[in-house]
Nucleic acid binder design. Structure first.
Length: 204
DNA sequence: TGCCAGGCCCTCTTTAGGGCCTT
């Protein structure tokens, strides 16, 4: 069963998009992902994609992805077909996963594909594990945990790499804190959804 | 014209409201 797999064998992904809501017509403009097997990076995926309309100046400034860069990029449908093949039957992780899950579902719906995998949210876990962090934005958590980064933010591959390092850091911290050797993906999902008052019961 | 999401979580809560996160 997929959920019995170890939490350190997942695909960590991040979308850059034209806005916040596919229901309002927003589309993906970049996908980045890191494949982890037993805590090691074994593959990357990164691709710009042309949403079929110009992105706003806010998005150009926020992501450093310009309309000129997108003009020659392949369309979303072609990129997402390749990405669906890349994720296969892996479990998935993203920071604020509800956002990326909405776009993944919407973009795969357009090409008649589906993902069967489970999704876990690194932000929900960080809120429980690092309750004293200044906040739980990805960039803040990377600094808070002294996680290596190259200074690039709000690009899909860079953010997915940082999220992957944060994910593995949280797994290590949970292992040390609760004295366990291996954490199933399903237990991380349970941790993410458990009320803070009860989180110590999840790994005991 | 003006507006525009949504799930989670906390509290001055649960017959609600608002901040946090993502682009």
């Amino acid at each position: 069963m997929i959920n019995s797999r170890s939490a350190d064998s997942v695909i960590v992904l991040d979308f850059e998009t034209t806005g916040l809501s596919p229901a309002q017509g927003d589309r993906a403009i970049e996908i980045g992902a890191v494949k982890l097997e037993h805590g090691q990076v074994v593959a990357h995926f990164q691709q710009l994609m042309n949403p079929g309309f110009r992105v706003s100046s806010f998005i150009e400034n926020y992501t450093s992805i310009s309309n000129n860069m997108l003009r020659t990029a392949p369309c979303c449908e072609d990129v997402m077909a390749d990405f669906a093949d890349f994720i296969g039957d892996a479990n998935l992780v993203a920071h604020n996963a509800s956002f990326d899950q909405r776009f993944l579902t919407a973009e795969l719906d357009i090409i008649g594909r589906q993902y069967r995998e489970q999704f876990a949210c690194s932000m929900l876990i960080a809120r429980r594990l690092y309750q004293h962090a200044p906040n739980h934005k990805l960039g803040t958590l990377v600094e808070y945990k002294h996680i290596h980064h190259d200074g690039v933010f709000h690009r899909a591959l860079a953010d997915s790499e940082m999220t992957a390092r944060l994910w593995l850091t949280m797994i290590d911290d949970i292992k040390h804190q609760y004295g366990i050797n291996d954490i199933p993906f399903s237990l991380m999902q349970k941790f993410a959804k458990t009320p803070k008052a009860n989180i110590n019961k999840v790994f005991c």
